[in-house]
């Protein structure tokens, strides 16, 4: 076992004996610190462990900065397909824990789709390994993908193997049009052979991004080529809102008609950002104030399953709950 992992395991075991609750912290760029929990930092546990461009796999310690990962990949003309948002100092471990995926999600898939394996410490400080470095692997339950989004509540993930993809050239186009028309159009385009990697509506424009060789777009009426900046604006999306207004993230079916208060449509229609004082009436709504609070809208049955799984990984309740 690596020395830093050993130290982390010892901290977990000590917390267990002292009945302490641990909050796992990476770059401290996302989830705010909780006063009642002790910080377990993975900052020191960083670095790329192996990278075989031809195998399309990179393995890194959880504390590795996203920026470092992306730079190393770019040198070999590769990238993380899921376009994780950069909150400043973000680590791959924290990004995985929050399961954050950028605008290419409807086209290239989400973070967990690219997770091939993890090494982790469970609530007893045991070092466990799930999955591996293989693109295809169906031996045992897919724990590595399941824990994406667990926000440090189940185990301390120390190492991640991710599938990477070739860096592609992308061009962004936009058309000025009403939101409701844009929602239909983006869904229509996604059903054609145009190689899309982004489709959004923001500030009165429908934006779409195309990968690689593709038919000329700007000969169509109203279409103009623009730079790729809008995707950074939307990922992470941090609009300035008037006092009293809150930002809500809605996950909906991509063809859902316009929703009141929407200030941006992302993910080819399946994500709506709504600014409003009150919580919009929708099944999948999250208050998005950058505290990454869980939604807590599971039914009783699913709640019970999640509690049960928490006990499997963390029987002594060492890791902070969501």
């Amino acid at each position: 076992m690596e020395q830093t992992v050993k130290l982390l395991a010892e901290q977990i075991q000590q917390a267990r004996h002292e009945n302490q609750t641990l909050q796992i912290v990476g770059g401290n760029s996302k989830v705010p610190l909780n006063d009642t929990a002790q910080v377990l930092s993975i900052q020191e546990h960083s670095g790329i462990l192996s990278y075989e461009p031809a195998e399309l796999v990179i393995t890194a310690r959880a504390g590795t900065r996203l920026q470092e990962l992306q730079q190393v990949l770019a040198e070999k003309k590769q990238m993380l397909a899921f376009e994780p948002p950069e909150y400043g100092n973000s680590t791959i471990g924290g990004t995985y824990a929050c399961a954050l995926t950028g605008p290419a999600r409807p086209f290239r898939g989400k973070l967990r789709d690219y997770v091939l394996g993890t090494k982790l410490l469970d609530g007893q400080g045991r070092a466990l390994s799930f999955g591996g470095k293989m693109i295809k692997n169906v031996a045992g339950y897919d724990v590595s993908r399941m824990l994406a989004g667990s926000k440090g509540s189940m185990a301390l993930v120390t190492e991640l193997s991710l599938k990477v993809v070739p860096l592609v050239e992308e061009v962004t186009y936009r058309i000025e049009m009403p939101e409701c028309e844009a929602i239909v159009l983006m869904n229509q385009l996604a059903g054609t052979s145009l190689p899309l990697s982004g489709a959004a509506y923001y500030g009165g424009y429908f934006y779409y991004r195309v990968m690689g060789a593709h038919p000329k777009q700007t000969n169509r009426v109203g279409v103009e080529a623009v730079d790729n900046q809008v995707w950074q604006t939307l990922n992470p999306f941090r609009p300035k809102l008037p006092p009293g207004q809150k930002l809500w993230r809605l996950d909906v079916e991509s063809t859902t008609p316009c929703i009141d208060g929407t200030i941006a449509v992302g993910m080819c229609g399946s994500r709506r950002w709504v600014a409003s004082e009150h919580k919009p009436e929708h099944p999948y709504v999250t208050l998005w104030d950058e505290r990454f609070l869980p939604r807590h809208n599971d039914g009783l049955g699913v709640q019970k399953i999640k509690q049960g799984l928490k006990k499997v990984f963390d029987p002594y309740h060492v890791f902070q709950d969501l």
Partner: peptide
Amino acid sequence: EYVFDEKDDGIDLLALLNG
């Protein structure tokens, strides 16, 4: 009956059920 959906929050039970 349970529904596991990609829009769910928290751990990814949909991924777990696959395979």
